[in-house]
Amino acid sequence: HTCEKCSTSIANQAVRIQEGRYRHPGCYTCADCGLNLKMRGHFWVGDELYCEKHAR
């Protein structure tokens, strides 16, 4: 898989955010504040991922 955020190959663990879309665990972050979304879930606003606070 290729990380959709940093565009590099994912060798080990990948986070599947949608069918066919993956990120490194470290790239699974809010587009606004950079908070890691692991164990928090994500919210779509347009084509970007946000934490609950910044999705509003």
Rank of each mutant, 00 (worst) to 15 (best):
K5C: 10
C27P: 04
L35H: 11
P25K: 11
H24G: 03
Y28S: 08
G34A: 10
C33G: 01
R40P: 14
N36G: 09
K53S: 14
C33M: 00
N36L: 08
C3K: 03
Y50K: 12
D47E: 09
E48H: 10
E4G: 11
D47L: 11
I17Y: 04
W44T: 07
Q13C: 07
T2I: 14
D32E: 08
H54F: 00
C30H: 01
G26L: 14
T8M: 09
C6Y: 01
E48K: 11
A31K: 14
G34T: 08
E4L: 03
K5A: 14
H42T: 12
K38V: 03
Y22I: 01
V15P: 02
Q18G: 10
E48A: 09
C3E: 00
A11K: 15
T2W: 04
G41Q: 10
T2V: 01
I17T: 05
H24S: 06
T29L: 09
V15D: 09
V45H: 15
C30P: 01
P25W: 01
N36Q: 15
E52M: 08
Q13S: 09
A55G: 10
H54S: 03
T8D: 15
D32N: 11
E4A: 06
T8N: 15
W44F: 12
K5Q: 14
A55E: 05
A31Q: 10
G41F: 06
E48N: 14
E4D: 10
R40T: 11
S7K: 01
C51G: 01
D47R: 12
H54P: 01
K5N: 15
Q13W: 00
D32M: 11
G26C: 12
T29W: 01
Q13F: 10
N12G: 04
C33F: 00
L35T: 14
W44P: 14
T2A: 02
T29G: 07
A55D: 09
H42W: 07
A31I: 03
W44Y: 14
M39F: 08
R23L: 07
L37I: 05
G20K: 11
E48R: 10
M39N: 13
H24Q: 08
C27H: 02
H24R: 04
A31V: 11
G46Y: 12
A11T: 11
L49N: 00
N36C: 09
F43R: 08
R40E: 13
A11P: 14
Y50V: 13
R40Q: 09
Q18K: 08
H42S: 12
Y22W: 11
R23W: 04
T29D: 15
Y22F: 13
K53D: 13
C6Q: 07
C3D: 00
C27R: 00
Y28R: 03
Y28H: 07
L35C: 07
Y28F: 04
G46A: 07
I10H: 01
H24W: 01
G34S: 12
R23S: 06
G41V: 04
C27T: 03
R21L: 11
C33I: 02
L49R: 00
G20R: 08
K5L: 12
M39T: 14
F43N: 13
L37M: 08
E52W: 09
R40I: 05
H24F: 00
G20I: 06
C30Q: 01
H42I: 06
Y28K: 04
V45K: 15
S9K: 14
F43G: 10
K5D: 14
E48W: 03
T2Q: 05
Y50F: 11
Y50R: 11
Y50I: 07
P25M: 13
A55L: 05
D32R: 14
R23F: 04
D47T: 11
R40S: 13
Y22P: 03
Q18T: 10
H24C: 15
N12R: 01
H54T: 01
Y22D: 09
C33T: 01
E48M: 08
A14R: 03
C6P: 05
Y50E: 01
I10C: 10
W44I: 15
E48C: 06
Q13T: 09
K5S: 09
S7Q: 11
C51N: 00
I10V: 07
N12V: 07
A11G: 12
G26R: 14
Q13R: 01
W44V: 12
D32Y: 09
P25D: 15
L49Q: 08
A55I: 07
H1N: 15
L35V: 12
N36R: 06
K38D: 15
V15G: 05
T8A: 15
Y28A: 10
E19K: 12
I17W: 02
M39I: 05
C3F: 03
R21S: 11
I17C: 03
N12L: 04
R23A: 09
R21A: 12
R56K: 15
C30K: 00
C3M: 00
Y22S: 05
E52K: 07
T2G: 00
